[in-house]
């Protein structure tokens, strides 16, 4: 099943930022979002993840198929690496954490408390969380922040495994992931400042 976005208009702080966004993401493919700061990447990703409503347009193939990861990883400092992963595995009803530990070389850290990890190690754990959700569509906001080159390679490998297994991913990132992926420059969807799309501040103009 593909992720399909049609004529999507989204707002941030009551003002439309992107209008007419459309793309189709078939299974097994990744889509990299590009655009300057403040263009609306995070807003678009949060909309895909169902965390905020769109002003108009359709998203199909999202909802319960999305696994979302942003700057905050949802990790508890006072739980060990395994406990953190196990918790999310149980919430998503998968229970399988071994593959996730291996994919990001977390096994040596398995018994460490998440609070004692470095920023990059925490990020790896946060990305490993995606694997235990068992969800096919990853929606990732700057996933490689604070990762070193080795960890970026682990991420790229995990992503390719995920795609090969029929998954897909929408990623906002500035770095090169080391393999070919479609890119979407969202600056081209920038909403005109005169656009009236039903945003909450419009009634007052």
């Amino acid at each position: 099943m593909e992720l399909r976005v049609d004529n999507l208009t989204i707002a941030r702080g009551g003002v439309p930022v992107l209008a007419g966004v459309h793309f189709v993401l078939p299974a097994g493919r990744a889509l990299v979002l590009r655009g300057p700061n403040g263009a609306g990447k995070t807003t678009l990703l949060r909309t895909l993840a169902g965390l905020q409503p769109a002003l108009s347009g359709q998203i199909s193939g999202a909802g319960e198929r999305i696994a979302y990861a942003a700057h905050a990883d949802g990790l508890k400092a006072m739980l060990s690496v395994t406990e953190n992963l196990q918790f999310w595995a149980e919430i998503f009803g998968t229970r399988e954490t071994d593959a996730a530990l291996d994919a990001y070389a977390l096994r040596p850290l398995a018994e460490r408390m998440a609070g004692t990890l470095s920023a990059g190690q925490k990020r790896r754990l946060g990305l490993a969380r995606l694997l235990v959700t068992g969800r096919p569509v990853w929606v990732l906001d700057e996933p490689t922040v604070s990762l070193d080159t080795a960890a970026v390679a682990q991420f790229a490998a995990a992503l390719q495994t995920h795609l090969a297994a029929g998954g897909s991913a929408v990623i906002a990132t500035h770095i090169d992931l080391g393999f070919k992926a479609a890119t979407l420059d969202i600056a081209s969807f920038r909403a005109a400042s005169t656009l009236l799309a039903g945003a909450s501040d419009e009634a007052f103009l």
Binding site: G13, G14, V15, A191, S193, D201, E202
Partner: peptide, 10 residues
Amino acid sequence: SALLARAGRE
């Protein structure tokens, strides 16, 4: 504030 927000976008 709506006018300010729109002006900021321009």
